[in-house]
Protein backbone atom coordinates (compact mmCIF):
# COMPACT_ATOMS: atom_id res chain seq x y z
CA UNK A 1 0.00 0.00 0.00
CA UNK A 2 1.19 3.50 -0.78
CA UNK A 3 -0.18 7.00 -0.16
CA UNK A 4 1.22 10.14 -1.73
CA UNK A 5 0.26 13.42 -0.08
CA UNK A 6 0.89 17.02 -1.09
CA UNK A 7 0.84 19.48 1.82
CA UNK A 8 0.60 23.12 0.84
CA UNK A 9 -0.17 26.62 1.98
CA UNK A 10 1.52 29.97 2.56
CA UNK A 11 4.78 30.32 4.50
CA UNK A 12 4.04 30.51 8.23
CA UNK A 13 0.70 28.65 8.16
CA UNK A 14 2.06 25.54 9.85
CA UNK A 15 2.47 23.18 6.90
CA UNK A 16 5.74 21.76 8.16
CA UNK A 17 4.20 20.89 11.57
CA UNK A 18 1.58 18.79 9.81
CA UNK A 19 4.37 17.06 7.89
CA UNK A 20 6.31 16.44 11.10
CA UNK A 21 3.29 14.83 12.77
CA UNK A 22 2.51 12.53 9.85
CA UNK A 23 6.23 11.69 9.77
CA UNK A 24 6.21 10.78 13.45
CA UNK A 25 3.14 8.57 13.00
CA UNK A 26 4.70 6.82 10.01
CA UNK A 27 7.98 6.21 11.84
CA UNK A 28 6.09 4.83 14.86
CA UNK A 29 4.03 2.56 12.57
CA UNK A 30 7.24 1.31 10.94
CA UNK A 31 6.21 2.15 7.37
CA UNK A 32 8.47 3.78 4.78
CA UNK A 33 8.42 7.55 4.46
CA UNK A 34 9.98 10.24 2.31
CA UNK A 35 9.16 13.87 2.88
CA UNK A 36 10.53 16.62 0.63
CA UNK A 37 10.26 20.22 1.81
CA UNK A 38 11.00 23.60 0.31
CA UNK A 39 13.06 25.86 2.55
CA UNK A 40 14.74 29.22 2.10
CA UNK A 41 13.42 32.02 -0.02
CA UNK A 42 9.92 30.61 -0.42
CA UNK A 43 9.19 30.92 3.27
CA UNK A 44 8.77 34.70 3.17
CA UNK A 45 5.02 34.93 2.58
CA UNK A 46 5.38 32.81 -0.53
CA UNK A 47 3.76 29.50 -1.37
CA UNK A 48 5.17 26.46 0.45
CA UNK A 49 4.62 22.80 -0.17
CA UNK A 50 5.84 19.48 1.04
CA UNK A 51 5.71 16.13 -0.74
CA UNK A 52 4.94 13.30 1.66
CA UNK A 53 5.18 9.71 0.51
CA UNK A 54 4.10 6.83 2.75
CA UNK A 55 4.37 3.20 1.75
CA UNK A 56 4.59 -0.35 3.05
CA UNK A 57 7.28 -0.93 0.37
CA UNK A 58 10.53 1.01 -0.16
CA UNK A 59 10.08 4.40 -1.84
CA UNK A 60 12.37 5.57 -4.66
CA UNK A 61 11.71 9.21 -5.56
CA UNK A 62 11.53 11.95 -2.91
CA UNK A 63 9.15 13.82 -5.20
CA UNK A 64 5.65 12.66 -6.16
CA UNK A 65 5.07 12.22 -9.90
CA UNK A 66 2.23 14.25 -11.41
CA UNK A 67 -1.13 12.50 -11.35
CA UNK A 68 -0.16 10.29 -8.41
CA UNK A 69 -1.06 12.21 -5.25
CA UNK A 70 -3.88 10.58 -3.30
CA UNK A 71 -4.58 13.65 -1.18
CA UNK A 72 -3.80 17.35 -1.37
CA UNK A 73 -3.95 18.85 2.13
CA UNK A 74 -4.01 22.63 1.87
CA UNK A 75 -4.13 25.47 4.39
CA UNK A 76 -5.43 27.78 1.65
CA UNK A 77 -7.92 27.23 -1.23
CA UNK A 78 -5.92 28.80 -4.09
CA UNK A 79 -2.78 26.94 -2.98
CA UNK A 80 -4.72 23.65 -3.33
CA UNK A 81 -5.36 24.51 -6.99
CA UNK A 82 -1.66 25.21 -7.60
CA UNK A 83 -0.85 21.50 -7.25
CA UNK A 84 -3.87 20.09 -9.08
CA UNK A 85 -1.66 18.44 -11.73
CA UNK A 86 -0.33 16.18 -8.99
CA UNK A 87 -3.75 14.82 -7.96
CA UNK A 88 -4.88 11.36 -9.09
CA UNK A 89 -8.25 11.29 -10.81
CA UNK A 90 -9.65 9.37 -7.83
CA UNK A 91 -7.80 11.54 -5.30
CA UNK A 92 -9.20 14.24 -3.03
CA UNK A 93 -8.45 17.80 -1.92
CA UNK A 94 -8.82 18.60 1.79
CA UNK A 95 -8.57 22.33 2.26
CA UNK A 96 -9.28 25.40 4.31
CA UNK A 97 -11.88 27.51 2.49
CA UNK A 98 -10.49 30.82 3.72
CA UNK A 99 -8.34 32.75 1.21
CA UNK A 100 -5.05 34.18 2.44
CA UNK A 101 -4.77 37.37 0.42
CA UNK A 102 -1.28 38.88 0.48
CA UNK A 103 -1.00 39.63 -3.24
CA UNK A 104 -2.77 42.30 -5.28
CA UNK A 105 -3.90 39.92 -8.04
CA UNK A 106 -5.59 37.26 -5.90
CA UNK A 107 -8.29 35.63 -8.06
CA UNK A 108 -12.00 36.36 -7.70
CA UNK A 109 -13.07 34.40 -4.62
CA UNK A 110 -16.41 33.20 -6.02
CA UNK A 111 -14.74 31.95 -9.21
CA UNK A 112 -12.06 30.25 -7.13
CA UNK A 113 -14.68 28.51 -5.03
CA UNK A 114 -16.68 27.31 -8.02
CA UNK A 115 -13.53 25.95 -9.69
CA UNK A 116 -12.60 24.13 -6.51
CA UNK A 117 -16.12 22.65 -6.46
CA UNK A 118 -15.58 21.05 -9.87
CA UNK A 119 -12.88 18.94 -8.22
CA UNK A 120 -13.20 16.21 -5.58
CA UNK A 121 -12.84 18.18 -2.37
CA UNK A 122 -13.65 18.68 1.30
CA UNK A 123 -13.57 22.27 2.58
CA UNK A 124 -13.90 23.81 5.99
CA UNK A 125 -13.35 27.14 7.69
CA UNK A 126 -10.58 25.79 9.92
CA UNK A 127 -9.68 29.21 11.25
CA UNK A 128 -13.24 29.77 12.53
CA UNK A 129 -13.14 26.41 14.31
CA UNK A 130 -9.73 27.16 15.82
CA UNK A 131 -11.00 30.58 16.94
CA UNK A 132 -14.09 28.95 18.48
CA UNK A 133 -11.73 26.68 20.42
CA UNK A 134 -9.80 29.81 21.46
CA UNK A 135 -6.69 28.31 19.88
CA UNK A 136 -6.03 30.22 16.67
CA UNK A 137 -2.60 28.61 16.30
CA UNK A 138 -4.17 25.14 16.04
CA UNK A 139 -5.95 25.71 12.70
CA UNK A 140 -3.41 23.40 11.07
CA UNK A 141 -4.41 20.61 13.48
CA UNK A 142 -8.09 21.08 12.53
CA UNK A 143 -6.99 20.55 8.94
CA UNK A 144 -4.94 17.46 9.83
CA UNK A 145 -7.97 16.04 11.66
CA UNK A 146 -10.14 16.66 8.58
CA UNK A 147 -7.60 14.93 6.39
CA UNK A 148 -6.91 12.05 8.78
CA UNK A 149 -9.61 9.68 7.47
CA UNK A 150 -8.30 10.14 3.90
CA UNK A 151 -4.67 9.36 4.73
CA UNK A 152 -5.67 5.71 5.05
CA UNK A 153 -2.27 4.11 5.45
CA UNK A 154 -2.22 5.46 9.03
CA UNK A 155 -5.22 5.29 11.34
CA UNK A 156 -6.85 8.37 12.87
CA UNK A 157 -5.72 7.05 16.26
CA UNK A 158 -2.06 6.74 15.12
CA UNK A 159 -2.13 10.34 13.87
CA UNK A 160 -3.79 11.55 17.06
CA UNK A 161 -1.06 9.93 19.13
CA UNK A 162 1.61 11.60 17.00
CA UNK A 163 0.01 15.00 17.70
CA UNK A 164 0.56 14.47 21.43
CA UNK A 165 4.11 13.20 20.92
CA UNK A 166 5.17 16.15 18.76
CA UNK A 167 3.68 18.83 21.03
CA UNK A 168 4.70 17.08 24.27
CA UNK A 169 7.74 19.27 24.91
CA UNK A 170 5.55 22.39 24.71
CA UNK A 171 3.56 21.28 27.77
CA UNK A 172 0.19 19.68 28.50
CA UNK A 173 -1.92 22.75 27.71
CA UNK A 174 -0.54 22.95 24.15
CA UNK A 175 -1.03 19.20 23.66
CA UNK A 176 -4.65 19.44 24.85
CA UNK A 177 -5.42 22.41 22.60
CA UNK A 178 -3.99 20.68 19.56
CA UNK A 179 -5.80 17.41 20.30
CA UNK A 180 -9.12 19.29 20.64
CA UNK A 181 -8.47 20.96 17.29
CA UNK A 182 -7.57 17.63 15.71
CA UNK A 183 -10.71 15.96 17.09
CA UNK A 184 -12.94 18.74 15.78
CA UNK A 185 -11.38 18.28 12.35
CA UNK A 186 -12.04 14.54 12.42
CA UNK A 187 -15.67 15.16 13.43
CA UNK A 188 -16.13 17.74 10.68
CA UNK A 189 -14.92 15.37 7.99
CA UNK A 190 -17.58 12.82 9.02
CA UNK A 191 -20.37 15.25 8.19
Amino acid sequence: MKKDIILCGVGGQGILSIATIIGEAATEAGIYLKQAEVHGMSQRGGDVQSNLRLSTDPIWSDQIPTGEADVIISMEPMEALRYISYLRHDGIIVTSNKPFVNIPNYPDEAALKSELDTLPNVQLDIEAIAAELKSAKSANMVLLGMAAPYIGILTVEQLRKAVSVIFARKGDAVVEANLRAFDRGVEASKK
Binding site: G45, G46, M78, I84, A111
Partner: peptide, 9 residues
Protein backbone atom coordinates in the same frame (compact mmCIF):
# COMPACT_ATOMS: atom_id res chain seq x y z
CA UNK B 1 -6.30 25.64 -12.64
CA UNK B 2 -7.66 28.91 -14.03
CA UNK B 3 -8.00 30.86 -10.80
CA UNK B 4 -4.39 30.90 -9.84
CA UNK B 5 -1.87 33.66 -9.15
CA UNK B 6 1.81 33.52 -8.29
CA UNK B 7 2.68 34.18 -4.68
CA UNK B 8 6.26 35.43 -4.79
CA UNK B 9 8.27 35.64 -1.58
Amino acid sequence: AKNLAGRPP
